[in-house]
Design a binder for these strands. Structure first.
Length: 506
RNA sequence: GGCGCAUUCGUCUAAUGGUUCAGGAUACCGCCCUCUCAAGGCGGUGAUACGGGUUCGAAUCCCGUAUGCGCUACCA
């Protein structure tokens, strides 16, 4: 009989969800699904000062983007709600009171000013900073009386003065911390709302969470949570602290404040940015699952159900990983090439609309797009790279810009020869009864044969003439996409440009 | 500063004391294909941070050093 696993993703809505958060969500979801367990979404908004209402939407839309469906939580409900911590204040307060009664917590009346001063003095003295336990010495009755009089206070956890506190982490083993290095943390703020430490333990227990997956930044405070479970006499869940994702620029974990730069270009950090940059959810899912975990020693591409089947938290790496943007791009290209052409076309639409100002219906009427999309996907790694390869398709046939007319030169040929090749190509095309990629190639090869010229000489300068770039999609699909008339126009235009350039001796 | 965690090719990683002159992927380089650029195929360069132990045997276990990361709030 298998254990019934319940996991949760518990982000705090303080801004856009970033890649590390999405990876945590993915691992948490994967573990629940692997065990046929339950995946819960909980919003940890106990800090009203940092609350950003837009970020709840950012979180849920990111999860939906990767199709990480939650069984309980906002939008779907469930039997362990509410799933928003700001709606659970009364629960935290009663649990904090229970802790006071049991002698595991106490009221602290120290002013913020005293705390700041204390910290300053400790730092100046080179001492570790932390609460000095001042209010621990207050008699319980006296503290109660002060509270009854309405004096502002917090509730702090009693941390033993000595001894070792041990926490078991599934991927790191047992972690031991000397209690003397710990200080009494605030559990309940003076505004009556819980601090993370209390809220997370109470909620995880009440929601029946069996496996806690969270970021490595929680490892140092895990002993507090262990103490809390002990104080409540609750079973301790399995802890899995996930390694952080590092910024490739070597400045710690990924953040928007210090954007990761690759070749001087700022890379995406927030989930929305990855989506906007044209990464596919399928690729993102596969990639993220393999960042810090391995499904197989020699394979990297897996469908999502296979990842679910293989996923195992105990084989997650404990070491932080630098975000390999190049590998993500490679994998995205791979998924792009596996997609149906129609689907790619549909996903391309917003990027083309933005770049070329065509409406979606105008775009879908462009048969040329359908003709070249297969060649296009071989050359892009993200959807946002597509417009750069398609300028020629949207340019006026008679007005394509040739920033460097030399590109129109046939390989190792002079200008006069190249101009002649372009003109001859135009004449050939103009007289073709049936025009498409295949017939064009035949026609040009025939023309080359008659002129005793290598066909490649035609191909090179024609491609430059039609596309306006040195590196472009292949000639024949481009030509078919453009249509016979446009091809003739553009070839003649190119010949003119090259000739004019020659005439001026430039 | 204190506490904790980590450390295998540039990067993501495999190896769970012996099937390893350390495997895969990406990136890079070369070749093939080829109208350019790609894609695809084939091949190549490239790593166990350092120093001590333990052991017949260490990338793997222990200790120290170094480095990196995280935490050190009435943030999460």
């Amino acid at each position: 009989m298998t254990r019934s696993v319940r996991t949760r993703f518990a982000p705090s809505p303080t801004g856009q969800l970033h890649l590390g958060g999405l990876r945590t969500a993915l691992f948490t979801w994967l573990w629940a699904r692997h065990n046929q367990g339950t995946f819960i979404l909980r919003i940890e908004d106990t800090d009203s000062k940092r609350f950003d209402p837009a970020s709840v939407e950012s979180i849920t839309s990111a999860l939906k983007w990767l199709e990480l469906d939650w069984d309980e939580g906002p939008e779907v409900g469930g039997g362990h709600g509410p799933y928003v911590q700001s709606e659970r204040g009364a629960i935290y307060r009663s649990h904090a009171e229970y802790l006071i009664g049991a002698g595991h917590a106490y009221r602290c009346f120290c002013s913020p000013a005293r705390l700041v001063d204390l910290r300053r003095r400790q730092q100046n003295a080179g001492q570790p900073s932390g609460y000095d336990g001042h209010c621990r010495r207050l008699a319980k009755r006296q503290a109660q009386a002060m509270a009854d009089r309405g004096q502002e206070h917090t509730i702090r956890l009693v941390v033993p003065d000595s001894g070792t506190i041990q926490v078991d982490d599934l991927i790191r083993g047992r972690i031991s911390v000397d209690a003397a290095t710990l200080h009494d943390p605030v559990l309940l703020k003076s505004d009556g709302m819980a601090v993370y430490h209390l809220a997370v333990v109470v909620d995880d227990h009440l929601m029946g969470i069996t496996d806690v997956l969270r970021g490595q930044e929680w490892l140092p405070t895990a002993p507090y949570h262990r103490l809390l479970y002990q104080a409540f006499e609750w079973d301790v869940p399995i802890f899995v602290h996930l390694p952080v994702i590092l910024n490739p620029n070597g400045e710690g974990k990924m953040s928007k404040r210090r954007p990761p730069l690759v070749d001087g270009v700022a890379m995406p950090v927030h989930v929305d940015e990855f989506r906007d940059a044209g990464y596919l959810p399928e690729a993102m899912f596969n990639f993220l699952a393999l960042l810090g975990w391995t499904a197989d020693a020699s394979e990297e591409v897996f469908p999502r159900d296979e990842l679910v089947r293989r996923f195992d938290v105990s084989s997650i790496s404990a070491a932080p990983a630098t975000m390999p943007y190049d590998k993500l791009a490679w994998m995205n290209g791979l998924y792009l090439r596996k997609m149906e052409r129609e689907a790619v076309l549909a996903m391309l639409q917003p990027y083309l609309t933005k770049a070329f100002g065509r409406t979606p219906s105008q775009l879908s009427a462009m048969s040329g797009l359908t003709i070249v999309v297969g060649e296009l996907v071989d050359r892009i790694r993200t959807l946002s790279e597509a417009p750069d390869w398609l300028e020629w398709l949207f340019a006026d046939p008679a007005e394509l810009d040739y920033p460097d007319p030399d590109m129109l030169l046939a390989r190792k040929q002079d200008r006069a020869t190249s101009v002649a090749l372009l003109k001859s190509a135009a004449d050939t095309v103009a007289t073709m009864p049936v025009f498409n990629a295949v017939s064009l190639e035949t026609a040009i090869r025939d023309a080359a044969g008659r002129a005793d010229t290598k066909p490649g000489l035609y191909f090179g300068c024609m491609r430059a003439a039609l596309s306006g770039t040195k590196a472009s999609l292949p000639l024949f699909p481009i030509a078919e996409a453009l249509g016979q008339d446009n091809v003739v126009t553009r070839l003649r235009h190119a010949a003119q440009v090259l000739e004019a350039c020659h005439a001026t001796g430039a």
